[in-house]
């Protein structure tokens, strides 16, 4: 198990990420969408690569997708993740399908994870006082 209270919090006031962290607090996954051409993008950036517009909005998306790639970490390298092995996956969203989201995977033995497996978001408070909510991934349909 990971230790959510030990995970170092990023700067939650960073304007490029405020909408993201506000979303996870409400158990929503929000990503960026270009206001001019409608292209979704991730990770957050200031400019749309498609049309160069800097007008951006944040939209909620279904936190569902399939494992695109993953790794099983065998040796601790970060606070909050002292217990190895644990898995981290790149998950391709079901929709919009051009977006992939990185996340640690819970609710499954790391060795059982496979590319193509269906996962869904799982929201957990992190930080010493639960200051932020982290969206991790877990097998779709499994009990929390």
């Amino acid at each position: 198990m990971f230790e959510p209270e030990l995970i170092p919090l990023p700067d939650l006031s960073d304007p490029n990420f405020v909408p993201f962290w506000e979303g996870t607090k409400e158990h929503q996954l929000r990503i960026q969408q270009c206001e001019d051409c409608g292209t979704h993008r991730w990770p957050p950036r200031s400019t749309c690569r498609h049309c160069r517009s800097t007008a951006v909005t944040w939209v909620p998306v279904e936190p569902r997708g399939r494992v695109y790639s993953y790794t099983i970490v065998g040796r601790p390298t970060t606070k909050g993740y002292a217990n190895t092995p644990y898995a981290v996956a790149i998950v391709a969203l079901d929709a919009p399908s051009n977006i992939r989201i990185i996340g640690s995977v819970v609710g499954i033995e790391p060795s059982q994870l496979a590319i193509g497996m269906a996962l869904e978001g799982r929201f957990t408070p992190i930080g010493p006082n639960g200051e932020a909510t982290l969206m991790q991934w877990a097998p779709a349909g499994a009990q929390a």
């Binding site: 990420f17 993201f20 970060t78 990185i102 982290l134």
Partner: peptide, 10 residues
Amino acid sequence: RHLEHVHGLN
């Protein structure tokens, strides 16, 4: 820091 380190990827 926002999207990877918090997941134990660093």
